[in-house]
Design a protein around this nucleic acid. Sequence first.
RNA 1: GUGGCCAUCGUUCAAUGGUAGGACAAUGGUUUGUGGUACCAUGAAUCAGGGUUCGAUUCCCUGUGGCCACCCCA
Length: 482
Amino acid sequence: MVQKKVSVSKDRSTKKEEKKKGVVKISVKKSPKAEEKIIPRSLRGMRDILPEDQPYWERVRRVLAHSSQEYGFQRIDTPLVEYENLFTRLIGTSTDIVDKEMYTFTTRGGDKVALRPEFTAGIARAYIEHGMGILPKPVKLFSLGPVYRYDRPQEGRYREFWQGNFELYGEDDAILDAQTIQLAYRVVQQLGLKNIEFQINSIGVPESRKEYSKALVRYLEAQRSKLCQNCRERLSTNPMRILDCKEDKCIQLTAQAPQSIDYLDEESRSHFKHLLEYLDELELPYVINTRLVRGLDYYTKTVFEIWSGDKDGKKYSLGGGGRYDRLVQMMGGEATPAIGFALGIDRVILEMKRTQVKPYQEPRARVFLAQLGEMAKKKSLKLFSELEKNGILIAESFGRGSLKSQMRVSNRMGAEVTIIIGQKEALDDTAIVKDMVSGTQETVIHSRLVEAVKKILHTNQELKIKEVNIARTSENEDEKKD
RNA sequence: GUGGCCAUCGUUCAAUGGUAGGACAAUGGUUUGUGGUACCAUGAAUCAGGGUUCGAUUCCCUGUGGCCACCCCA
């Protein structure tokens, strides 16, 4: 920081001097591009997840690990980078994700590769590559990591963002669709999110979709003039998207438009019917949204999104998924039905903060070690590791001056015990153990130190448990277990 | 990719065509080895690069970044 200031003022004064002396700018420009300055800034749409945010991430990680285990998922991690055509071919060349949001580049070896914009393609690739088709079905895979999309950043929308991803291979029964949604619900519920709503739709198979698309165009074409400018263009590019339009006139028009559900093939229709029955049985909060069309080509039959938000307020999409029965086959594998969903971790955390969900509480140091003088310093370092070996988390402020300032730090971090070693204690091999709650203290010899500290911590623990119990009886639920 | 708004200490909010002030946070201290409060002190910023100007942090341009809407999605 000091450095910064110095260099800035230097620059300024030299500039000034140059000007005063009548030095012409050109000389500055000519000077061999004075080493490009390092700008300490992250790239657009990329951000750091700072220590202060980690408790939220930790809670999410724990819930995901827990839930995925409960539902029999196995963790898989695939590379961030894959061949570009894995994504272009599977996600679809006319989708936004592939069209304008992929990070692509050519390696030194000449391979055309891309940063993964989503998980499914890579995991399906791994499924085939490692012959997971021989495993007992369904094969359930869970993954967590960053994905990349070159989009205009906004709140809750980043170019590098994290997804928790669940995939189930090898089962086409609608009960798996229901279970997947149930799992999604379980996860957001355990994360303490309320006001969750599932938007569900079935988009059938590509053939029936084509037919529906034709019917939709036929209907809308007749009333072309009543559509908004945007939608008129969409008529030829992506008619299904018109269903998503926010313009009043378009909403009115599309309200009477043919619905995709009516064009479903027989199998998809019955699949959808079964799914809804299961969902009703589970009493999950869902609504059928016939306008829901998802942005990837590989989806078949069931698609859904997880929304959060109050009735009146804004709604945020926290995640989504669907069935992709043809994906594995498209990739050259054996025909394998599959379903999955992804949760947008960044958005989930945003929503946790918005609704004031408690983050994970890191176990924190409850004991502070203060030391005074050279000799005490030497002793305290050894004590530190000794206590730590006995399972006592220690905080310290080695290198800090007065005892007073050390006590202040101890107090501010909420330590329950402060161990003080001064010159005298260092000589006698003793230490002062101070109970920060009561303020009492005693001098103990090293061999009894651990015992003395633990005793205080225990009494405090018991007091705390009592308090918590009293609080619990009045307001139950919420944080049942973490 | 299109349009709009914005950019000052770590955070947050001021101010100005003459190089910036407060609050919170940080650090040290208020008699030598004990926490809180209070008080005092210290360090800390005009996103970058050009231009206009005697002089720019302020005005203009470009870039970069943030936010919002569209688009899309997680």
